[in-house]
Amino acid sequence: MKKGDSIAFFVLIFLIILLPVLSGSTYTLTVGIFSGINALVAIGLCILMGYAGQVSLGQAGFYGIGAYVSSVLSLHIGLPIVISTIFAMIVAAIAAVILSVPALRLKGHYLAVATLGFGEIIYIILNEWGPGGPSGFGDIPHFSLLGYTVDSTTGYFYLIWGLVAAVMFFSINLIHSRTGRALRAIHESELACNAMGLNVVALKIKVFILSAVYASLAGSLYAHYVTFISPSSFSLFYSILVLMMVIVGGITNLWGAIIGAVVITVLPELLRRFEELDVLVYGLILTLSLMFFKKGLVPILIEKIKKLRGFAVAKH
């Protein structure tokens, strides 16, 4: 891990531990929990899009698979939640392979529309064949591990942000490894990657699987936290929301995914008063950040810090 990453990582852990202590308010923690769930999906999309350069407008599909598969398995078959969550990840991974094998020949717009189509198909399947149809179902068991059931808000906060930290640790290591370099190289020039003997197809499939597994994990956590789910949480709008998180935070930086997830999750809470405005506000934020803050919050912040530091050094 590089120095900047290590510092950021410690700050993250520090905040995770401290927040429930400082602010015991259930409301704050609940918003925090949803931010964490979204962050998991956003980290996956960030690796997929920002690093490997593959567009996806279908992350809601994998998120939905995670939620539904794990809920159904734990509720109806009585599997332990950890097992059902892992099982859901496997299903999501298989779906990712089925989607990516043909889709990864496509680029740009074609890939965007293909993934969008995939997400919508999952959405239709959930509506038609999911338990409860469009109105969804409840009584999903709470998360439990080794006989200990998580049912307090604080418990969920630690569980989910603990997983965010773990996923972040894994992802940062990955990005700074041989594999991460290869992913970035694919983004730059597939032609050159092929000439260097990189197995471009395999790498793309694997990174798709990774993003699907993250989204599935998030979906399962969501379901076992809210204990009631319906297809509307897994529509195209969610895919676009995740896209926004990644872009607002800064698509070229993994930390941007977390910051973006928090911002985009907290924002509607702040905008509660203007209920009807939310779609418009989302759209404007996305448009404006694409036009004027193309790089996103975190990369801009890093530049600022570097400049300040350069200034300080120059002064001495």
Binding site: V55, L57, G108, V279, G283, L284, T287, M291
Partner: peptide
Amino acid sequence: LLLMIMITIAVSIVLRG
């Protein structure tokens, strides 16, 4: 291309809003 795709999506959301 990525930016182009996303900007038209963004505009579509604004219009929908």
